[in-house]
Amino acid sequence: MKVYVNDREFDLVQGMTVKHALIDAGLLDMIKKGKKVYDEMDNEIGLSGELTDGAKIYIR
């Protein structure tokens, strides 16, 4: 499935989570530094949140 992290496209295995998208994007360390992950509607989402094809997430 394709997911988008800060508008960059990544391919993940079905069933993977926000954590996997951040690993692929090389951005997991940002969370350790206090950043959080949000969906398109500005809702915070947890690292274990399961993603679906086309999901767009943002780190702030």
Partner: peptide, 30 residues
């Protein structure tokens, strides 16, 4: 089924008063 799928469900099916969701671990604060 996840938050975005819940949104889709609400758009497609009339007559639902409340969807209490899970799966995407979304913090629906507003």
């Amino acid at each position: 089924i996840g938050f975005s799928a819940d949104m889709d469900l609400a758009k497609k099916v009339e007559g639902i008063d409340v969807i209490v969701g899970g799966h995407s671990h979304t913090k629906v604060a507003k």
